[in-house]
Protein backbone atom coordinates (compact mmCIF):
# COMPACT_ATOMS: atom_id res chain seq x y z
CA UNK A 1 0.00 0.00 0.00
CA UNK A 2 2.85 2.28 0.96
CA UNK A 3 4.67 1.41 -2.30
CA UNK A 4 1.55 2.31 -4.27
CA UNK A 5 1.31 5.68 -2.51
CA UNK A 6 4.94 6.36 -3.28
CA UNK A 7 4.37 5.57 -6.96
CA UNK A 8 1.39 7.95 -7.02
CA UNK A 9 3.43 10.68 -5.39
CA UNK A 10 6.24 10.17 -7.91
CA UNK A 11 3.79 10.28 -10.82
CA UNK A 12 2.17 13.43 -9.49
CA UNK A 13 5.58 15.05 -9.06
CA UNK A 14 6.63 14.17 -12.61
CA UNK A 15 3.33 15.46 -13.97
CA UNK A 16 3.78 18.74 -12.11
CA UNK A 17 7.35 19.13 -13.40
CA UNK A 18 6.25 18.41 -16.97
CA UNK A 19 3.34 20.87 -16.76
CA UNK A 20 5.52 23.59 -15.29
CA UNK A 21 8.23 23.10 -17.90
CA UNK A 22 5.73 23.20 -20.71
CA UNK A 23 4.52 26.61 -19.50
CA UNK A 24 7.84 28.14 -18.55
CA UNK A 25 10.17 26.84 -21.23
CA UNK A 26 10.45 28.03 -24.83
CA UNK A 27 7.73 26.73 -27.00
CA UNK A 28 8.79 24.90 -30.11
CA UNK A 29 8.38 27.10 -33.19
CA UNK A 30 5.93 25.95 -35.79
CA UNK A 31 7.20 25.92 -39.36
CA UNK A 32 6.73 29.37 -40.93
CA UNK A 33 6.43 31.13 -37.59
CA UNK A 34 8.85 34.09 -37.24
CA UNK A 35 11.08 34.56 -34.24
CA UNK A 36 10.72 38.13 -32.99
CA UNK A 37 14.12 39.44 -31.91
CA UNK A 38 14.36 41.39 -28.68
CA UNK A 39 14.94 45.05 -29.49
CA UNK A 40 15.54 48.11 -27.36
CA UNK A 41 14.52 51.76 -27.63
CA UNK A 42 18.20 52.66 -28.16
CA UNK A 43 18.42 50.31 -31.12
CA UNK A 44 15.42 51.98 -32.75
CA UNK A 45 16.75 55.49 -32.04
CA UNK A 46 20.14 54.55 -33.43
CA UNK A 47 18.54 53.19 -36.59
CA UNK A 48 17.07 56.62 -37.27
CA UNK A 49 20.30 58.59 -37.04
CA UNK A 50 22.65 59.41 -39.88
CA UNK A 51 26.29 60.40 -39.63
CA UNK A 52 28.64 60.87 -36.73
CA UNK A 53 27.34 62.28 -33.46
CA UNK A 54 30.29 64.68 -33.05
CA UNK A 55 29.59 66.49 -36.33
CA UNK A 56 29.61 70.32 -35.97
CA UNK A 57 25.94 70.60 -36.89
CA UNK A 58 23.09 68.46 -35.63
CA UNK A 59 19.68 68.48 -37.30
CA UNK A 60 16.68 66.97 -35.54
CA UNK A 61 13.87 66.51 -38.05
CA UNK A 62 10.32 66.01 -36.79
CA UNK A 63 8.25 64.56 -39.59
CA UNK A 64 4.94 62.86 -40.22
CA UNK A 65 4.84 60.18 -42.93
CA UNK A 66 1.47 61.41 -44.17
CA UNK A 67 2.26 65.14 -44.41
CA UNK A 68 2.97 66.32 -48.00
CA UNK A 69 5.52 68.94 -46.94
CA UNK A 70 7.39 66.26 -44.98
CA UNK A 71 7.46 64.18 -48.16
CA UNK A 72 9.00 67.14 -49.98
CA UNK A 73 11.49 67.75 -47.20
CA UNK A 74 12.57 64.11 -46.95
CA UNK A 75 12.88 63.39 -50.66
CA UNK A 76 14.18 66.73 -51.93
CA UNK A 77 16.12 68.17 -49.01
CA UNK A 78 17.14 65.54 -46.47
CA UNK A 79 18.19 62.88 -49.01
CA UNK A 80 20.68 65.19 -50.79
CA UNK A 81 21.75 66.51 -47.38
CA UNK A 82 22.60 62.96 -46.29
CA UNK A 83 24.56 62.36 -49.48
CA UNK A 84 26.57 65.58 -49.27
CA UNK A 85 26.86 66.80 -45.69
CA UNK A 86 26.11 63.79 -43.52
CA UNK A 87 28.41 61.45 -45.38
CA UNK A 88 31.23 64.01 -45.13
CA UNK A 89 30.82 64.24 -41.34
CA UNK A 90 29.59 67.85 -41.28
CA UNK A 91 26.01 67.13 -40.23
CA UNK A 92 24.50 64.63 -37.82
CA UNK A 93 20.88 63.99 -38.77
CA UNK A 94 18.37 62.55 -36.33
CA UNK A 95 14.92 61.60 -37.55
CA UNK A 96 11.97 61.84 -35.15
CA UNK A 97 8.39 60.67 -35.60
CA UNK A 98 5.70 63.24 -35.03
CA UNK A 99 2.56 61.46 -36.25
CA UNK A 100 -0.77 63.22 -36.09
CA UNK A 101 -2.48 62.18 -39.32
CA UNK A 102 -4.90 59.21 -39.33
CA UNK A 103 -2.50 56.54 -40.60
CA UNK A 104 0.89 58.08 -39.98
CA UNK A 105 1.28 56.38 -36.61
CA UNK A 106 0.94 52.96 -38.28
CA UNK A 107 3.54 54.01 -40.84
CA UNK A 108 5.81 55.19 -38.02
CA UNK A 109 5.48 51.77 -36.29
CA UNK A 110 6.69 50.03 -39.45
CA UNK A 111 9.50 52.53 -40.03
CA UNK A 112 10.71 52.23 -36.44
CA UNK A 113 10.51 48.44 -36.58
CA UNK A 114 12.63 48.60 -39.73
CA UNK A 115 15.01 51.02 -37.96
CA UNK A 116 15.69 48.36 -35.33
CA UNK A 117 16.89 46.11 -38.15
CA UNK A 118 18.95 48.89 -39.77
CA UNK A 119 16.47 49.31 -42.62
CA UNK A 120 14.93 52.68 -41.79
CA UNK A 121 16.12 54.54 -44.90
CA UNK A 122 14.54 52.33 -47.59
CA UNK A 123 11.30 52.00 -45.63
CA UNK A 124 11.02 55.74 -44.91
CA UNK A 125 11.84 56.55 -48.52
CA UNK A 126 9.19 54.11 -49.79
CA UNK A 127 6.58 55.46 -47.38
CA UNK A 128 7.22 59.03 -48.48
CA UNK A 129 7.53 58.15 -52.15
CA UNK A 130 4.20 56.26 -52.21
CA UNK A 131 2.43 58.53 -49.74
CA UNK A 132 -0.54 59.03 -52.09
CA UNK A 133 -1.10 55.27 -52.32
CA UNK A 134 -1.46 54.49 -48.62
CA UNK A 135 -2.49 57.73 -46.99
CA UNK A 136 -6.16 57.25 -47.97
CA UNK A 137 -6.39 53.58 -47.13
CA UNK A 138 -3.84 53.05 -44.40
CA UNK A 139 -2.45 50.02 -46.27
CA UNK A 140 1.15 50.50 -45.29
CA UNK A 141 2.25 46.85 -45.42
CA UNK A 142 2.49 46.39 -49.23
CA UNK A 143 4.62 49.55 -49.49
CA UNK A 144 7.01 48.33 -46.80
CA UNK A 145 7.05 44.78 -48.15
CA UNK A 146 8.21 46.04 -51.54
CA UNK A 147 11.54 47.19 -50.13
CA UNK A 148 12.25 44.36 -47.65
CA UNK A 149 12.99 40.69 -48.11
CA UNK A 150 10.09 38.40 -47.12
CA UNK A 151 12.00 37.23 -44.04
CA UNK A 152 12.76 40.79 -42.90
CA UNK A 153 9.18 41.83 -43.63
CA UNK A 154 7.84 39.11 -41.34
CA UNK A 155 10.09 40.36 -38.54
CA UNK A 156 9.11 43.99 -39.16
CA UNK A 157 5.42 43.01 -39.16
CA UNK A 158 5.86 41.31 -35.81
CA UNK A 159 8.00 44.10 -34.34
CA UNK A 160 5.52 46.77 -35.42
CA UNK A 161 3.01 45.27 -32.99
CA UNK A 162 5.37 45.33 -30.01
CA UNK A 163 5.16 47.77 -27.12
CA UNK A 164 8.83 48.77 -27.56
CA UNK A 165 8.17 50.12 -31.05
CA UNK A 166 4.96 51.84 -29.91
CA UNK A 167 6.91 53.36 -27.03
CA UNK A 168 9.67 54.59 -29.39
CA UNK A 169 7.13 56.44 -31.54
CA UNK A 170 5.39 57.91 -28.50
CA UNK A 171 8.73 58.97 -26.98
CA UNK A 172 9.62 60.86 -30.18
CA UNK A 173 6.21 62.54 -30.18
CA UNK A 174 6.48 63.52 -26.50
CA UNK A 175 9.99 64.88 -27.04
CA UNK A 176 8.70 67.03 -29.91
CA UNK A 177 5.83 68.32 -27.79
CA UNK A 178 8.26 69.25 -25.03
CA UNK A 179 10.36 71.22 -27.56
CA UNK A 180 7.25 73.03 -28.79
CA UNK A 181 6.75 71.26 -32.12
CA UNK A 182 3.18 71.85 -33.25
CA UNK A 183 3.48 71.47 -36.99
CA UNK A 184 5.42 69.32 -39.42
CA UNK A 185 7.99 69.35 -40.77
CA UNK A 186 9.96 71.08 -38.04
CA UNK A 187 13.72 70.94 -37.90
CA UNK A 188 15.94 71.97 -35.05
CA UNK A 189 19.40 72.93 -36.21
CA UNK A 190 21.95 72.86 -33.40
CA UNK A 191 25.31 74.56 -33.81
CA UNK A 192 27.64 75.66 -30.98
CA UNK A 193 25.00 74.64 -28.47
CA UNK A 194 22.34 76.89 -30.03
CA UNK A 195 19.15 75.23 -31.22
CA UNK A 196 17.20 77.03 -33.94
CA UNK A 197 13.71 75.92 -35.04
CA UNK A 198 12.96 75.83 -38.77
CA UNK A 199 9.28 75.29 -39.45
CA UNK A 200 7.98 74.14 -42.81
CA UNK A 201 9.62 72.97 -45.99
CA UNK A 202 13.06 74.31 -46.87
CA UNK A 203 14.60 73.65 -50.26
CA UNK A 204 18.01 72.01 -50.39
CA UNK A 205 19.91 74.91 -52.08
CA UNK A 206 18.80 77.27 -49.31
CA UNK A 207 19.44 74.83 -46.43
CA UNK A 208 22.84 74.09 -47.94
CA UNK A 209 23.80 77.78 -47.92
CA UNK A 210 22.65 78.11 -44.31
CA UNK A 211 24.79 75.13 -43.29
CA UNK A 212 27.77 76.58 -45.18
CA UNK A 213 27.29 79.91 -43.38
CA UNK A 214 27.20 78.10 -40.03
CA UNK A 215 30.32 76.10 -40.86
CA UNK A 216 32.21 79.27 -41.83
CA UNK A 217 31.15 81.13 -38.69
Amino acid sequence: MKALANRFALAAFLLAVFTASSFAGPRPRRPGQTAVPKITLQQIAQGKTFGVSNAPIRIDAYTDFECPHCQDLYLNTLRPLIDEYVSSGKVYLVDHDFPFHPYSRIAAYYADAAAALGRFSPVAQALFLHQNEWSYTGKVEPIVAAVLSPAKMRIVQALAQTSVVHQAVQDDYNQGMRLGVNQTPTMYITHNGQKMPIVGFVSYPILRRYIDALLHQ
Binding site: I198, V202, S203, R209, Y210, A213, H216
Partner: peptide, 27 residues
Protein backbone atom coordinates in the same frame (compact mmCIF):
# COMPACT_ATOMS: atom_id res chain seq x y z
CA UNK B 1 29.85 89.95 -41.38
CA UNK B 2 29.75 86.23 -40.44
CA UNK B 3 26.79 86.62 -38.12
CA UNK B 4 25.01 88.65 -40.81
CA UNK B 5 25.57 85.86 -43.31
CA UNK B 6 23.99 83.33 -40.96
CA UNK B 7 21.11 85.65 -40.02
CA UNK B 8 20.27 86.33 -43.64
CA UNK B 9 20.38 82.66 -44.52
CA UNK B 10 18.08 81.95 -41.59
CA UNK B 11 15.69 84.57 -42.97
CA UNK B 12 16.10 83.01 -46.43
CA UNK B 13 14.88 79.68 -45.04
CA UNK B 14 11.82 81.39 -43.62
CA UNK B 15 11.06 83.04 -46.97
CA UNK B 16 11.66 79.71 -48.68
CA UNK B 17 9.08 77.98 -46.49
CA UNK B 18 6.37 80.07 -48.22
CA UNK B 19 7.31 78.22 -51.43
CA UNK B 20 6.54 81.21 -53.64
CA UNK B 21 9.93 82.20 -55.03
CA UNK B 22 12.76 80.42 -56.82
CA UNK B 23 16.07 80.11 -54.96
CA UNK B 24 17.57 83.24 -56.54
CA UNK B 25 14.44 85.23 -55.60
CA UNK B 26 14.63 83.94 -52.03
CA UNK B 27 18.29 84.92 -51.82
Amino acid sequence: PNSLDVSMMMFAMQIDSYQMLPSWGVM
